[in-house]
Each structure stands twice: as structure tokens, then as C-alpha cells.
Design a protein around this nucleic acid. Structure first.
Lengths: 369, 369
DNA sequence: CAACATGTGGCAACCGCTTGCCGCTCCGGC
DNA sequence: GCCGGAGCGGCAAGCGGTTGCCACATGTTG
């Protein structure tokens, strides 16, 4: 629209200097005499000049953009990662280019291939690509993968074993013993880790699935679960826990009275649903940030000392979806009203602002029943 | 990392043709003899050649990227918009560049200025910038604004008046009469529209706020609301409704038994919380899609016939946060001192029921998503 | 058979900015 | 007075494509 935007040549002419000087005035502070630079800046502002990232990127070889590949931009799991990445990128003067694979491996490849030449570095969150495909990309640009370990590629992940240990301890402390793991996507590296950790910590555990890592997916697990129930369930992620709990509720099984449910991730909705979810908080934001910081470091010449994964700690957020196991609960818990035993739960303070509402609201609901 | 990626010149040499032919083989199907093009493509594939979007953008003047500016990429309100935009962009072979203002007007300007030269068109979702700032950008690139009307700039918005009419009819049908509007951000165009519509349709309505358009923001409104309650509340958006309901519940006011709450947007969480929200479904996805389709049309030469806003229909999704108003209630459930009792009586006598059987299950499923 | 349209490929001039290299000026030191 | 260096600005060659224009070979047409 309107006339063509001004270039450094227009500015140069107006300021009576060479184009190279204008370029340097913007990109190389100190290289140009201060007064000159000042004048150039003034003239540029008057003309409404802005550098063209395209041209700059083409000639300089750096674009100040870093890419973040996610499977689904709308998935709440990623939103915190995106925020963390965004923060770190912005702080470093970089623009974050989020590419959405929309749950398709093919699309992921395509989008990434398009982006790879455009960005100075790439963060891959929960990629569906093969290790070798990732390594191929890592040959062209600095890459950091999230939530997954790929040999020879730097990665940041959370301490699954530790998180699961907390889960098991928490549940055991409430009197639960046999656990059911409701699995997410088979291709998921994290899913494998979680199940493996659980089985190691609680050898008697069983596994259901895989199911889609979504609310409906969790719902689908309900019927299977009831076929061979246990007093406590661990789900792959929060969405599945929500789906499972809803479905169970419809079927007359009360959570947490009859069944305790623990999930992973601690997405925002985990606190909003009823019952609020007891969940292992994956440090999503920190992961996004860490990944970007590192990819930037590598892009700017830092040789990664090691490709050992960076492991971030996780913590258990206890809310209302877990409770002490009812005595005499040896029988199928959903078959009738559970005994109204006194129960009490120690909860850690929720990580979110606004809260105590979840706690109180739950207590209210119970009391008025 | 590794050696420099191949260019058209490398491909040209390997294929024994001129660089321009290579370029055309990729960008101008049909312009080159099929056999030649085929050979070039093969050689290119062997070499692992990919076009550089940067270089292409620089010389061709088009980048096949379109920008989408949002206030907060993690806000569920935007996720559906993003998805819709993403879909439309992908279908047209464009890449979507989402820029996140992170709730800051300054950042929005900065990010947009950086992006504007990079993209072929821009969609502004709920911008915080002034009309004139938007028009300035619209002079440089095709722009479509969402959820807001800016003279001389194409826009797509939802039929607020119609949506509000449904709300009022729904509530009236349940026996409610005096409404309270819990307002969102003052700068929000949509907020103004919603309040204005409500006041026109139900002149007796009152307005509370503004509050932050978030869960805590809605919670903050609870106390104010109880100071001069009504039997039905309309909130600016879903997040506020969730916050309000939670806070009210803590204070002993039951929703929907004591107070009915209707909100706007129908974000994903609206269905997951308890009680599930009765809400006006803003066609988020369709808006994103429509905006992109139109900005693309303009970018590709279509002269907008008119800058009349494109208005998308909205619909009311009835769930569990609204219920029939109880007759003969009348006693304030919250029992605390009600400072403005006098005024309250003059308005609408709040009738908190005591015998409502309306339960937690939602009455109407909103199957489609 | 001449005149001309059509299909293909090459040449070279950009697109807007960066940067290595050069040259001029000015200064201080010997 | 001469020399080396620092400071500062200009020149010009790219970066990797795109595209207007031209040239040549063939096919068509009258």
C-alpha cells in the first residue's frame, strides 16, 4: 500500500552520507562518530525508516529469530513453554517464530524445513520426528529439544523419576498401593519415561492404553479402568485426568473418594476443574526459557560443553483429586456408597495466585453434601 | 553448522542450466520445460537444496508469511483464533507468524513494527493500539482487525447485540430481571459493545468494574457484586465468570442456585469447570480464518469492496451456570452485612432460592467444537 | 516459403543491507 | 618534521533469489 518504504539509501542521501554509514549507524554502535550517528538517526526517524529484517538477514546471515516447534499451538501444555521461550527470546532481542505442526508429522517436517533457514536456532518441543531427522536439522542450525533425549543434541527435560517418586510417596502416604497408569501416545518419549519410572517405583502397577492425550482420550480409559480398578490412578497428563474423572463421575465413581487420580504437567486448567487436580508440575515455563537461552548461547558461539540433557526439577502439587484410601476398600469401590470416613489431606500450597479457592470450595462442597 | 547450504547456483551448475532457470523451475511452474524442470528438481533434491525464504522475500517482495498479533499467546481466548488463522494460512501456503504483545502496548508496537516489513499481511486480534496507529500500519501492509471496528480498516467482529439478546432472552426466560454486568478492560472495544448492548436490551442493568479479564479479575468482582447483588450476572468473558463463581462459592453463594452467570467467548475451559459455563460462543476459529482469508485476498490484489465490518454470528451455549430464578427466596445467602441494602431493595430483590434442584450436570451439550 | 506466434532458456539488473578493505584526517611521539 | 595509529567514512562486492528482456529453435499459418 502507499509508496515504497525508505531504505538506507534514502536516509543516506537525506543525511548526506554513504549508505554504509547509515547501516553502521544502526548495526554497529561506536563505529560511527556519535554526532553523525545522531543525525542519521534523526533523519531516519523523520523518514520513517526501519531496517528490513529480510535484507539484514540475507546479508548478515543472522535473522534474530529463533524458532519454536510445537505439536499444537492451542494445547495448554505448550502455552507455558511458549511464554517461557518468548520471555527469553525477547530479553535477548530475538523474535520467536512459533511453528505449529498441528499434530501432523508431515506438517512438522514441512514447517520446520521452511523455517530452518530463516532462524538462528531452533527449539523442538515434543517433536514427532525421528531422532535422525532431528539430528539432520541440528546439523544446519543449533537445536535444543524439549522433553526428550536425542543423542548428540542438547536437550532439556524434567526429572521424571523424581516426580514419579513424589507421586508414589504421596499416594502411599494416603494408603494406596496398587496403581494404574493411563498411558498417553506411544510415540511419546515422556510417556515411556513415566511408565518406566512408575513400574520401577511400584512394581505392582498396571498400564492401560495408549489413549489420546486429551480429555476424550482420558474418558475413553474410564471403562477399561473399571474392568480392573485400583484405588489410585496416574495419568499421562492433566487433560486425560480431567476426561477420566468426568467419565468416572458420570458412571458413579467419585473422585477422590473412591479413586485418587494424579496426573502430570499442571496446566492452567488443572486448578480450575472440580476436583482440582493433584498433579506433577512440569516446569513448563522454565523449560521454554532454558531451551531458548541455550540455543542462543550455541548460536552465538558457545560450544555446548556436553550434550548431557539439562534436567529440571519437578514438584508435586497436591490438590483435591487425591484422598486417603478408604478402609475396607478391598471391594470394588464404585459399587456403592463409600463409607463416610473422616479423611484429611495435607496439601502443599498451590502454585497459583488466586487460590485457596480450590481448597475451600472443595471443602464446602463436601460439607454440604 | 557444517558447510554452507546449496543455492540455486549450485543446483544450476549441477544441472547444467542457468540459475534463472532453476529459480523458475521452482517458482513458476509451466514456465520451464517439464523435462528440464524435472531434472532440476531431482538434482536439487540430491543436493538438499531449499529455497531461502529470506532471499526470495527480498527480491520478490513477498514472503508468504502473514502476521497475527495477539495480546497474550497463552490466553485461551486466542488459541482458537490462532488455530483458525493457522488453518487458513496453511491452506493458502502461507506461514503464520504469531507475535505476542505480552499484554504490553509498547511491546505490541515494537513487535509489530519489526514484523510489518516481513509479512505480506497482518491480522490484529484485540489490539491495544490506537485507531490511528492501526491505520498507520494499514498503510504499509494489508491489515484486518479482529473484534474491533476501525474506520477505513477491514475488520471482522461478532454480532454482540445479537449474542446479548440471546443472553437476555435466556435469562428472562428463567425468570431473571435485573442484571449485573461485570466489565473487562476499559480499553476493550468488545467490552464497550457488550455493556452497551446489555444496557439497551435491559435498561435496568448495572455495571461493575472494570476488572482484569482474568480468573483473579472475576474473583475481585465478587465482593463488589455482593454489595448490591442481582439474580443474574453477565461477565465480560469466561475467565472472569470462572473467577467470580469460585469466589462466590467460597463466600457461600451457590451458582446457579443463587445466582445465574453468563459469560462470553466459550473458551475450552468453559465446559470443563463446575458448573460448566453458560456462555455466548464467539466464533473464534471462524474469526481467525475469516481474517486471514481476507487479508490474503487484499494482499493478492483484491480491493476490499467496502470496509464495512464483517459480522459473524454468535450463539448461546447453555450449560450449568444458569438456572431458573427461585420464587419467594429473598434472603441474602451470604449473610454478611450488606451495606447497600437499601439501594438493593429499590432495584431488584435478590431471591436466593433454597430448593433448587438444578444440578451439576449440564443441560445442553455443546457437541461441536 | 516467408512471416510470425510460441515455447524455453540465459543475461543481468536489481531487492536492501552488511562488511572487508581502503583512504583520508588528525594526533601524539620521537 | 616524519611516522604510526586511531577514528571515521566511502566503495563495492556480495547474500540468494526474481524477473524483464532478449535470443534462439520450432511449429503455424497464409
Amino acid at each position: 500500500m502507499s509508496e515504497r518504504p525508505p531504505t538506507i539509501y534514502d536516509v543516506a542521501k537525506a543525511a548526506g552520507v554513504a549508505a554504509s554509514t547509515v547501516s553502521r549507524a544502526f548495526a554497529r554502535p561506536g563505529r560511527v562518530n556519535f554526532a553523525t550517528a545522531e543525525r542519521i538517526r534523526r533523519v531516519a526517524a523523520e523518514l520513517g525508516y526501519r531496517v528490513s529484517p529480510l535484507a539484514r538477514g540475507l546479508s548478515a546471515g543472522r535473522t534474530s529469530m529463533i524458532g519454536l516447534g510445537v505439536a499444537d499451538i492451542g494445547n495448554p501444555f505448550y502455552t507455558e513453554i511458549i511464554r517461557g521461550a518468548q520471555d527469553a527470546a525477547a530479553e535477548a532481542g530475538y523474535t520467536l517464530l512459533v511453528t505449529d505442526a498441528r499434530e501432523s508429522g508431515a506438517r512438522e517436517r514441512e514447517a520446520l524445513e521452511r523455517a530452518v533457514t530463516t532462524v538462528d536456532g531452533l527449539v523442538l518441543a515434543t517433536s514427532r520426528m525421528s531422532d535422525s531427522a532431528i539430528r539432520a536439522i541440528a546439523k544446519q542450525r543449533p537445536v535444543v529439544v524439549l522433553n526428550r533425549a536425542v543423542t548428540d543434541v542438547p536437550s532439556v527435560l524434567t526429572d521424571t523419576a523424581d516426580g514419579m517418586r513424589r507421586v508414589v510417596e504421596h499416594l502411599a502416604g494416603l494408603g494406596h498401593e496398587g496403581f494404574t497408569y493411563v498411558a498417553g501416545p506411544e510415540a511419546s518419549w515422556a510417556d515411556g519415561m513415566r511408565w518406566r519410572s512408575l513400574r520401577e517405583l511400584a512394581p505392582g502397577s498396571r498400564r492401560l492404553g495408549p489413549y489420546a492425550p486429551s480429555v476424550p482420550g482420558g474418558g475413553a480409559a474410564a471403562a477399561d479402568f473399571l474392568r480392573a480398578p485400583s484405588s489410585a490412578v496416574v495419568t499421562y497428563n492433566d487433560a486425560m485426568a480431567i476426561g477420566l474423572i468426568r467419565r468416572l463421575t458420570v458412571m458413579g465413581v467419585r473422585v477422590p473418594r473412591d479413586v485418587s487420580v494424579v496426573s502430570f504437567d499442571n496446566v492452567e486448567a488443572a486448578e480450575l476443574v472440580t476436583p482440582a487436580l493433584t498433579t506433577v508440575a512440569t516446569p513448563l515455563r522454565a523449560m521454554g526459557r532454558t531451551a531458548v537461552v541455550n540455543v542462543l548461547a550455541i548460536a552465538n558461539g558457545a560450544v555446548p560443553h556436553t550434550t548431557e540433557p539439562m534436567v529440571l526439577p519437578s514438584r508435586l502439587v497436591v490438590r483435591a483429586s487425591t484422598a486417603r484410601r478408604e478402609k475396607g476398600g478391598g471391594r470394588a469401590v464404585w459399587e456403592g456408597p463409600a463409607p463416610h470416613a473422616e479423611r484429611r489431606r495435607n496439601r502443599t500450597s498451590p502454585a497459583w495466585g488466586t487460590t485457596n479457592a480450590s481448597g475451600s470450595s472443595r471443602r464446602t462442597a463436601d460439607g454440604s453434601r
